[in-house]
């Protein structure tokens, strides 16, 4: 049994931070604020959609993209607790997400939805 015990204690040291993070999940207070912010951003998005003066400007699309990126990031960081979780999960998610985003941009470029001006 001695070997068993020493082994598990070693492993506990090594994984201490992963395990500790799991227990520092955000609480009801954080969740509530996150939900409120998400709702407000969504309201803002819909509001600017109905502003003809704003939709006509070149800022409209970038603003919407930025707002939804913020929502996306908030959900991923807090609800999917990537902010608090092991770094491995971050790598497993953000790596593919970045490549996938590059591919979307690349395809839009190839199909002439995005143009480069020289």
């Amino acid at each position: 049994m001695a070997a068993d015990h020493s082994h598990s204690s070693v492993s506990h040291d090594a994984h201490g931070d992963a395990a500790a993070h799991e227990h520092t999940h955000p609480d009801w207070g954080t969740y509530k604020w996150v939900a409120l912010i998400l709702t407000l951003i969504t309201a803002l998005e819909v509001w600017i959609y109905y502003l003809p003066s704003f939709t006509a400007t070149r800022l409209f699309v970038p603003t919407l993209l930025a707002l939804s990126a913020i929502k996306f990031a908030i959900v991923v960081m807090f609800y999917m607790h990537l902010k608090y979780d092991a770094k491995l999960f971050r790598a497993l998610f953000i790596g593919p997400l970045l490549i996938a985003s590059f591919i979307i941009v690349g395809l839009l470029f190839l199909f002439n939805h995005i143009k480069i001006q020289f």
Binding site: M1, A3, D4, H7, V10, S11, A14
Partner: peptide, 14 residues
């Protein structure tokens, strides 16, 4: 620092 340990395989004969 042994950073690995295999699921449930602490057979005690390590």
């Amino acid at each position: 620092k042994i950073d690995v340990e295999v699921a449930g395989q602490k057979t005690g004969t390590l």
